[in-house]
Nucleic acid binder design. Structure first.
Length: 275
DNA sequence: TGACCCCTGGCC
DNA sequence: GGCCAGGGGTCA
């Protein structure tokens, strides 16, 4: 399931696959992925891809002729590039290219979103306007992170996952970044010291950077898909020994989602960190 | 802020 | 057979 790094890779793949090629036909299934948007509008997404931008977990695509597409992968969405004439399980929309290949948008659970809209309106869409700072696009200094999270009374991890504060951090990378920073997920943002903001902003950037470096594959594999392996430091490791200190990793529910953390590496009380 | 909803599939 | 899942949206 895609968070910022996976969406970034999806965008890079699309750009690569469409480079120097044209979409000769676009077609979509009648699914809730299109949120009531007219399928005919999707069919109009032909020609060259003029630009592609990622904001948080959203992709903003502009095709020639001023036609745009807002895409969100949801929990199980992905783009794949296939030879023509190959059926693809859960394919919800397809771009047929002038070299005979096909780009499928697959989505088993239909939590994804594909919204054809005039390119000029892409950035004005409410979903895009509501996004907070994107760490990779806009940068993320300790001060900017504190500015984005510091005034809420939500738990630190819940605030981190709020797309209106920082865009692109989901459940997995929130857990990973907090572990890297040595911060308990239930800390209150107001209690963080300057050095803790610094550790956290750096941890977010590092977590994304290493995920991006590891995911330079042709095709994304999400955790929980068959054949996938848990390479995360704490995420999904409840009751297993911490990869850093050996203490038992714990989990609890926070904001409706499961949080994983190491009680020893991420103490509830603020404390200096050994170096 | 929290509860529930949308869906299907994989795992125990 | 039941539980769980990394997304967001909406409602009270």
């Amino acid at each position: 399931m895609p968070e910022l790094p996976e969406v970034e890779i999806a965008g890079r793949n699309l750009v690569r696959w469409l480079h120097g090629r044209r979409v000769v036909k676009a077609e979509a299934e009648d699914t809730r992925v299109f949120r009531g948007a007219k399928r005919a509008k999707f069919s109009a997404l032909t020609g060259r891809l003029e630009s592609l931008e990622r904001r948080g977990k959203y992709l903003l695509l502009t095709f020639e002729g001023g036609r745009g597409l807002l895409a969100h992968l949801g929990m199980t969405g992905k783009f794949v590039h296939r030879p023509g004439g190959v059926a693809e399980l859960h394919s919800r929309a397809r771009f047929f290219l002038d070299d005979g290949t096909v780009i499928h948008f697959k989505d088993a659970r239909l939590f994804g979103r594909m919204e054809p809209v005039a390119a000029a309106r892409l950035r004005q869409l409410k979903a895009v306007q509501a996004l907070g700072r994107d760490p990779l696009v806009d940068g993320l200094t300790p001060e900017q992170l504190r500015e984005a999270l510091g005034r809420t009374r939500q738990d630190l991890k819940v605030a981190l996952m709020d797309q209106g504060r920082v865009a692109g951090v989901g459940n997995i990378y929130a857990a990973e970044a907090l572990f890297l920073a040595g911060l308990h997920p239930a800390r209150k943002p107001a209690s963080l010291k300057p050095e803790e903001w610094a550790r956290l902003s750096q941890a977010i950037l590092d977590t994304f950077a290493s995920a991006l470096a590891a995911e330079q594959g042709e095709e994304p594999v999400y955790l929980e898909e068959s054949g996938s392996e848990n390479t995360f430091r704490v995420y999904g490791r409840a009751d297993s020994p911490c990869t850093q200190c050996g203490a038992r990793v714990q989990s609890f529910t926070q904001g409706g989602r499961t949080t994983y953390f190491c009680p020893k590496c991420q103490p509830k009380r603020s404390r200096g960190r050994k170096r």
